[in-house]
Design a binder for these strands. Structure first.
Length: 429
RNA sequence: GGAGAGGUGGCAGAGUGGCUGAUUGUACCGGUUUCGAAAACCGGAGUGGGGCAACCCAUCGGGGGUUCGAAUCCCCCCCUCUCCGCCA
């Protein structure tokens, strides 16, 4: 949510920001807010004055003589009747204002590239050399099914499409990758978290997924809870409604969780293999800190580096893109995606997403801190990034490290998590 | 699922119809004292909104109601805790 004061001062920035994000209907919410705000502010002095009169009148009533008292009571009733309609109007204005304000997207940073969709994201970095195979490399689903590591057919029979079973060495690798990711971040001072997977609407709203993301979310209707699509939701909401002492900041969390996504509207897209699935495991980093743009940017680079270090340790070629306006979500001010080389796609595929929000999420969550000097509570800044999402990361791991005989080489850092093994699977080709 | 207790300012904890927007403690900020600190003492200070300001309005889990007047009374909802039941 944007700061209403800043919005009043500079509505053009909010409008232009929404348009840069290719959200014209949400840009319209800016004008709706300004109109509602103006009406509310015109109404308030009158209404407050009436309330003041009524209130002070009530205080004097005890001292009055019975005779004048009766007349005064009648006058008070009149005042209250006059006020009734205005109070209804005030309530309606406030409700609508809040609703419209919540629709206005965060303003993208000026460095966010212009563009309509992911095809216009701007590459900012490339690491590693794409491997030249001395044989015809196979896609992960082919190796996986032949090794007995994957079963999509039976999974979809009981759970529908975009579901999977992992077995054997691939199941072990899946877990190894997740544990490595947690350990890496814990080693860098992050607090490990195991969060709730079912959350209330308030957490979905506070992190900016609602309104708008309902179609992508599995909902437990009977209990009015939502399955999270990312641990960002419960972890960023962890301190919602709190005022944290500044000396407790920054808060850095690394959460491992299952994630659930309906993937509505993606029918026919990425249907083969482990790329786009309804349920996966993710290790996510979340940072909460003071309201300081420079520090947010520093954190942003640091959490990107954490992910890069992991990919480098996995010996996987990747590139980083600055996500363009049209591909940016409602709450983000700036986002880097990290894309890892996937031979079966003959392309880089998104494996990480690192966002900074400044105070947009925190304001919706009422997540604040008390500055060291004891002054007024300030709204925090929040950020997050993937450390690793699996099984998607298994695609580049299996495909880039496959050997001619169908076995898979294990990067050195993962071997301790696999009982010291350097190779997974049996020769099958 | 059944029964009970409770939700008040950063935290703890008073307050059952009218100078209570809220006693007090603690944490916090400023000062006195000190070589410095602690302690002690004095002062400040909840949150949001409006106004140049004096000041005004809202806010005691949320919503509705009674009343001239509600943190206090009534109704609905939400949440937390305790006991019982069921259970990974």
């Amino acid at each position: 949510m944007l700061d209403l004061k800043l919005l009043r001062e500079n509505p053009d920035a909010a409008r232009a920001g929404a348009l840069k994000k290719r959200m014209p209907d949400r840009a319209a919410a800016v004008d709706a807010v300004l109109k509602l705000d103006a009406e509310l502010r015109a109404l308030l002095p009158t209404l407050d004055g009436m309330r003041s009169e009524l209130k002070s009148g009530s205080k004097e009533i005890g001292k009055m003589a019975p005779a004048e008292r009766e007349a005064f009571l009648a006058r008070q009733k009149e005042r209250k009747a006059e006020m009734g309609g205005l109070e209804q109007r005030e309530k309606a204005l406030r409700a609508e204002l809040e609703k419209q304000l919540a629709l206005i997207p965060n303003i993208p940073d000026s460095e966010v590239p212009e563009g309509k969709d992911d095809s216009e994201n701007k590459e900012t970095k490339r690491w590693g050399t794409v491997r030249t195979f001395g044989f015809t490399p196979r896609p992960h689903y082919e190796i996986g099914e032949k090794q007995g590591w994957l079963d999509f057919e039976r999974a979809s029979k009981m759970a529908g499409s975009r579901n999977y079973f992992l077995f054997g060495d691939l199941a072990l690798l899946h877990d190894a990758v997740l544990r490595y990711a947690v350990d890496l971040l814990v080693g860098r001072g992050f607090t490990p978290v195991d969060p709730p997977l079912l959350v209330r609407d308030s957490a979905m709203f506070g992190t900016g997924f609602f309104p708008g993301g309902e179609e992508q979310t599995y909902r437990a209707e009977r209990d009015e809870l939502n399955l999270i699509g990312t641990a960002e939701v419960p972890v960023t909401s962890l301190h919602a409604g709190e005022i944290l002492p500044e000396d407790q900041l920054p808060k850095k969390y690394v959460a491992r969780s299952a994630c659930f996504r309906r993937e509505a509207g993606t029918y026919g897209k990425d249907t083969r293999g482990l790329y786009r699935v309804h349920q996966f495991q993710k290790v996510e980093q979340v940072v909460i800190d003071i309201a300081d743009t420079a520090r947010s940017i520093e954190h942003h680079h640091a959490i990107v580096k954490n992910a890069e270090d992991m990919l480098q340790a996995f010996e996987l070629p990747y590139r980083i893109v600055a996500v363009c306006g049209g591909d940016l979500g409602v709450p983000q001010a700036f986002k880097y995606d990290i894309e890892t080389w996937m031979p079966s796609r003959n392309a880089y595929g998104e494996t990480h997403s690192a966002s900074r929000f400044y105070d947009y999420q925190a304001r919706r969550l009422e997540l604040r801190y008390r500055p060291k000097d004891g002054s007024k509570a300030m709204v925090c800044h929040t950020l997050n990034n993937t450390v690793v999402a699996s099984p998607r990361i298994l695609i580049p791991l299996v495909e880039n490290h496959q050997q001619q005989d169908g076995t898979v080489r294990v990067p050195a850092v993962l071997q301790p998590y696999l009982g010291g093994r350097a190779v997974l699977g049996k020769p099958i080709y």
